[in-house]
């Protein structure tokens, strides 16, 4: 029964096409297993061998990996969502309704939204794990800092995405959040010391149309400009920055001596 399948697999593995993609044999012995990791762009993020204690689930909780997995899930479901969504007030809400009603297997938004929440939980737990194991200590100080920026960006990703459904939950949550910008010292209309920021002759530089909240919303309240701005931040700007920082984060894990363990 298995014999025809096995010989078919052996044939596939002997073809020139297969051997041009995977430049090593079946990973069954030490040499080919090392080759499998070294000759693959994605797997070579890992070293070829790791401390046994370092990959125990009770040590890592797999939370960093889960955060990255959720980033990928968010990217894929997000790209699919972009096919159906127009970031203007006239259409945004209707497009979300349409996603529910007309799109086959209409779970896209559910996966995207719950995945975003799960990503926040996972990244917090990852931070807690790294803290509790003291893994931020030398030589990993810098990578911890990169991780903190990634944490902030992840929360900003979730925050900018929160506006896009354009329902009551969305605009008022963003209103509450962006009202903080109005209170920024020196740069917000309702913040302290803003009067000090002025040109000679008493011309105020920070006005209701040039303060920190205006920069975020492109308006004095959450409106169509804010929707477009959050859409671009959410779909283009922040993911690009995240992707670069994730690359640095992963690369530095290896450069800083791999996964941590007792010294």
């Amino acid at each position: 029964m298995m014999q025809p399948v096995r010989s078919a697999l052996d044939y596939v593995r002997s073809t020139q096409i297969w051997n041009s993609i995977f430049r090593h044999g079946v990973p069954r012995d030490r040499r080919t297993r090392v080759m499998a990791v070294m000759s693959n762009l994605f797997l070579h993020l890992h070293p070829v061998a790791v401390r046994k204690s370092g990959i125990r689930l009770s040590f890592t909780w797999c939370m960093g990996g889960l955060t990255f997995f959720l980033f990928l899930a968010e990217t894929i479901s997000g790209v699919l969502l972009m096919f159906y969504y127009r970031p203007v007030p006239e259409y945004a809400y209707a497009d979300i309704i349409g996603l529910r009603a007309h799109v086959t297997l209409g779970l896209l938004r559910e996966i995207h939204r719950w995945g975003a929440h799960a990503m926040i939980i996972a990244i917090w737990l990852h931070m807690m794990r790294v803290f509790l194991t003291g893994s931020y200590k030398p030589p990993r100080e810098f990578n911890w800092g990169v991780g903190v920026i990634l944490l902030v960006l992840t929360m900003l990703m979730s925050f900018t995405g929160y506006l896009l459904p354009w329902d009551q939950l969305a605009i008022w949550a963003i209103t509450v959040g962006s009202n903080m910008g109005k209170a920024t010292p020196f740069l917000g209309m309702q913040g302290p010391f803003t009067d000090l920021v002025q040109l000679p002759g008493g011309v105020p530089l920070v006005t209701v149309k040039s303060d920190a909240a205006y920069l975020l919303l492109a308006g004095t309240s959450v409106g169509e400009n804010a929707l477009m701005r959050f859409y671009v931040l959410h779909c283009i700007a922040l993911p690009l920055v995240l992707a670069v920082l994730i690359a640095i984060h992963f690369w530095r894990i290896r450069k800083d001596g791999g996964i941590s363990g007792p010294l």
């Binding site: 809400y93 799960a118 459904p165 329902d167 009551q168 008022w172 949550a173």
Partner: peptide, 27 residues
Amino acid sequence: WSIVLRAPLESPANPAGPPNPSKAPWY
């Protein structure tokens, strides 16, 4: 999770009618 629980969607955005309470995202 996505099958069991629908993503929340409230009534369309109304800039004149804030809900009470108005809350930021949970995090």
